[in-house]
Write a protein that binds this DNA or RNA. Sequence first.
DNA 1: GCATATTTGTCCGTATGTATA
DNA 2: CTATACATACGGACAAATATG
Lengths: 229, 229
Amino acid sequence: MPTADDLARARVLLERTSTAERVAGILREQIMEGQFSPGDRLSEETITAGLGISRNTLREAFRLLAHEKLLVHELNRGVFVRKLDTADVTDLYRVRRVIECAAVRAGHELSDVDTKRLAEAVDDADSAALDGRWQDVGTANLRFHQAIAALHGSPRVDELMRQLSAELRLVFHVIKDPRILYEPYLSRNRDILGALLSGSVATAAEMLQDYLLDAEQQLTAAYAEASAR
Amino acid sequence: MPTADDLARARVLLERTSTAERVAGILREQIMEGQFSPGDRLSEETITAGLGISRNTLREAFRLLAHEKLLVHELNRGVFVRKLDTADVTDLYRVRRVIECAAVRAGHELSDVDTKRLAEAVDDADSAALDGRWQDVGTANLRFHQAIAALHGSPRVDELMRQLSAELRLVFHVIKDPRILYEPYLSRNRDILGALLSGSVATAAEMLQDYLLDAEQQLTAAYAEASAR
DNA sequence: GCATATTTGTCCGTATGTATA
DNA sequence: CTATACATACGGACAAATATG
């Protein structure tokens, strides 16, 4: 749970666009950073007092985040930080395989923007790994795969991937030792990128498919163990 | 194991809905039926007066529908019925091709539920066509394709397809003569179903792909013309 | 471009219903 | 079972933005 100070600092950020959306932005960040844990209830009173906003406004922000699946809303009980189970993880990877593998297999021409995004994500993951920032490795990793999905050139696919990534970040936060999870995938991502850049579409697709299957296996196992506690 | 009491309590929770959600349900139906046209503004005052609810409650309902993409929210201007352009139609079909073709190509075993849903949708489309209920033909057609996507066995894919279908229904409503649009596809859907049932996965996938490409072409043309007015 | 009317954005107080210690 | 805390829903108020003549 965030301290009163955290809320006070966040309060300064309350100086733009629609209040509900700004509030949603603040809460989104706090949830992503893990200042709330899955299952935590977000009290209307505590937050309205902390941020200096009305209940109506906060409730609109809650709706926004509930739609992003970061929060779940239970009637007359309040809103809670989303708690994913292993079935969710399995489903997330199922969808990722469909979307990402199709993006690669379609064999779209890579624009400069595409290649830059892909390469940067892989580089960021590597440097975060060198610094031991494993949470950031996970984030950069997701950015790489978002860049792959973006090859579809479809706004709706992009939005879907943002959605899936937000859910997966919730998962990552529960994992106790992300290192064993991500370390093997750094080089595999680089290999996939290499295959993509050299135009070996079928190879890249196969590597990606295998990657996602392996990742799902490891992640569900680690997640089941970590989220049990 | 949940006790009988647990289940009873869970059931109550399922059937209970908030006022905002019931209001959203009413408005959703009216929008789908075309009682509001794309671009129409939904006045807070008119609707609160008409339904006898408070503004705060209505605004929550608006948020829900905005997230379903039936409404768009413009700051300080209000909410409007979503207006799709041809780029949206193109993108919708792009995503459909990825999802639906992958569902067929994956070659999942067809359960009884699967086959029943597929067959019923095709039958419903035919009988609606016989009665000249072309709006219903469009709806049954979408149901057939949702059933195809459901072969993935993924809750998230199901939700995505519901989303895409809702958007497409907004498109259908603008088309002036849906008949020329849907009539050719009745038999093609039946052919795809036949290929699926006989296990000719590759054939079915190819037919589906061609179907979706042709449909997109015709639809964008008809839609551009109809929505211009 | 201006003044006015309308509509939304936000907040508050309160009454009622629901969940839980 | 009661008490308490909390969410739901309402209505009123005023500021701020937008639309209208």
